[in-house]
């Protein structure tokens, strides 16, 4: 038995692969649910109703999907150029704390229509700045950016913890370490009344479309894909590799920073060190499930948010730990990798 590269990738397989991957992940996670002594199908049924059963649940799922789309895009665009940005979690927090700092400062005297885009940009720039550190280390010292961007996550969260325990601490929070809230007119308008769903969702979807167009239709998009497919070949063909990677890093870090900014302005209004339940890391899964396609990121983020929100309700009703959502989503990353492989290879006797 051996593996043989396929001459061409059948479209059916390419379309089916994420679905098969998710089904396989759900099947394996189902064994874990069964091991806990709960009926598997009922558990999955409750996850679905927990995520979409009511109007409120559906808005909650979309609210959760918003930061996942942005961190998913951050990972997708970087991985496409084979820039391993694993630091979206830290970039998310830095974007968030930047918004909390500026949105509660004297600058918040600006009128809303100016202030909101300004804070978006500020959050994005904070994320960008953090991502440029591992890129600089790679270009200057040939350090693998995986480990450095990962390690910076811990530094960034500790920095945020220091800020909300120090200069940015809210004196009205009864001693809890949380930042001062951003001004009311810096909060994002709601999409649906009496829910937490805000226009950040629209921003995320527009971002996905823009990234798609950027990758498919511009010179920069071509260069960034070439940098990922074959760096030596790209340089030979005249692609400015360093400059392309700087742009990719800025875009990737910026999207993760924007995710943090939007989460503060759309949902929480202030920053704590549990603002993100691992949105940065989940973004990697979202990107892989989408096969690094920016439009696929929208669907993958919805799936991931469904699992997370749905598992909350299912857990309360059936006594299965909510961690089952994290397990399923992580499993689907692994099964997706295998599924992608079999769109490229076949088994021959």
């Amino acid at each position: 038995m051996r593996l043989e590269r396929r001459e061409h990738r059948p479209l059916v397989l390419v379309v089916l692969s994420p679905i098969l991957a998710v089904v396989a992940a759900l099947a394996i996670a189902g064994m874990l649910i069964a091991a806990a002594g709960a009926p598997v199908l009922e558990a999955y049924g409750r996850i679905l109703t927990g995520a979409f059963g009511t109007r409120l649940a559906a808005t909650e799922t979309l609210t959760r999907a918003t930061p996942l789309m942005l961190t998913g895009l951050a990972a997708a665009i970087a991985f496409r150029a084979r820039l391993w940005n694993i630091g979206a979690e830290g970039q998310f927090y830095l974007g968030a704390i930047m918004v909390a700092a500026l949105g509660s400062s004297a600058l918040s005297g600006l009128p809303g229509p100016i202030l909101i885009p300004f804070l978006f940009a500020a959050g994005a720039i904070a994320g960008m700045a953090l991502m440029l550190v591992p890129l600089w280390l790679r270009l200057r010292f040939s350090v693998d950016e995986v480990v450095t961007s990962l390690l910076l996550n811990f530094v960034a969260v500790l920095f945020v913890s220091m800020m909300i325990d120090g200069p940015l601490k809210d004196p009205l929070a009864f001693g809890w370490p949380q930042s001062m809230p951003v001004a009311d007119h810096a909060l994002l308008p709601k999409l649906v009344e009496r829910s937490r769903l805000h226009i950040g969702l629209v921003v995320a979807i527009v971002a996905a479309l823009l990234v798609y167009l950027l990758q498919a239709r511009t010179v920069f998009g071509l260069q960034s894909r070439a940098a990922g497919l074959n760096p030596e070949g790209a340089v030979f063909a005249g692609v400015p590799l360093g400059r392309t990677l700087v742009k990719v890093a800025c875009l990737s870090g910026g999207l993760a920073g924007l995710a943090g900014a939007i989460e503060v302005m759309g949902v929480k209004s202030y920053v704590t060190t549990d603002l993100s339940p691992g949105y940065g890391y989940a973004g990697i899964i979202v990107a892989m499930l989408a096969n690094l396609n920016p439009l696929g990121v929208i669907a993958a983020a919805l799936f991931t948010a469904t699992m997370f929100v749905g598992a909350d309700g299912m857990s309360r009703a059936m006594g299965i730990p909510t961690y089952i959502a994290d397990v399923t989503v992580a499993l689907s990353l692994l099964t997706m990798l295998v599924a992608i492989f079999f769109t490229q290879y076949r088994i021959r006797r």
């Binding site: 391993w84 995986v146 990697i284 892989m288 994290d326 397990v327 990353l333 692994l334």
Partner: peptide
């Protein structure tokens, strides 16, 4: 890279 990260998350 990606497999390892997947194993860590899983």
């Amino acid at each position: 890279h990606v497999t390892g990260l997947g194993i860590t998350l899983f």
